[in-house]
């Protein structure tokens, strides 16, 4: 554990809680992509199956359980409790275009050929692109509520902080895992446009709207 990793995890946690808070407080999931939320739930489910097979630390297990619970909770709020507020017309990204390539790639580039390892690798690849339906939705509607922008910023920062963590771990522990590093870089690059808009608009008190 290092400071970049801890900040990354806290940023990730903040993002997930912010989203739940936004939906609960406004009693609405307008502007949130259900497809991105579904993809994240698939990601956590595929990755955290190791809760049953290996124990790393209390911190690690608690975070995994929180991420899993929160993501299923978000799906419940979006597709059941506040379903009428879900803006599915604008959530039209085809997620099979993300799931299938991620699955194929996880059979091609993987450390070890075991079911758990392939599922873990699949989750890493899928996570890298899981935000695309949400970004597509923002680009289609041309705007995002401020709290949604904060959510996206925290979610994007998390993997960017992990990149710093991997650099740090490479120098201090000789830790190097190219699968997570390359996927993490792709994931962070996808947010770059959004980061720019967030810094130039949202932080100056303006609403995020596209030209």
């Amino acid at each position: 554990m290092n400071i970049f990793r801890l900040c990354g995890d806290l940023s990730h946690l903040l993002a997930i809680l912010l989203l739940l808070f936004k939906i609960w407080k406004t009693r609405s999931c307008a502007g949130i992509s259900g497809k991105t939320q579904l993809l994240f739930t698939i990601v956590y489910t595929a990755r955290y199956l190791d809760l049953f097979t290996s124990f790393v630390s209390v911190y690690n297990s608690v975070m995994k359980i929180v991420f899993l619970t929160a993501s299923y909770g978000t799906l419940y709020l979006m597709f059941y409790k506040f379903k009428p507020t879900y803006d599915h017309n604008h959530d039209s990204f085809r997620i099979l275009y993300l799931i299938v390539p991620a699955l194929v790639l996880s059979f091609i580039i993987v450390h070890v050929y075991t079911v758990m390892e392939i599922l873990w690798t699949f989750s890493i690849y899928l996570e890298a692109v899981a935000i695309m339906p949400q970004l597509f939705m923002v680009s289609r509607t041309g705007e995002a509520e401020t709290i949604t922008s904060h959510y996206l910023f925290a979610l994007g920062s998390y993997r960017a902080l992990y990149i710093l963590n991997w650099i740090y771990r490479y120098y201090t522990e000789d830790f190097l895992d190219w699968i997570t590093i390359m996927a993490g870089i792709v994931q962070t690059i996808l947010y770059c446009d959004f980061f720019y808009l967030y810094i130039t608009k949202v932080l100056k008190g303006k609403r995020l709207s596209l030209p």
């Binding site: 790393v56 450390h111 390892e117 190097l176 895992d177």
Partner: peptide
């Protein structure tokens, strides 16, 4: 060095 199966990251 590769650290499989030590997956301590989230």
């Amino acid at each position: 060095t590769l650290v499989y199966p030590d997956k301590d990251e989230l």
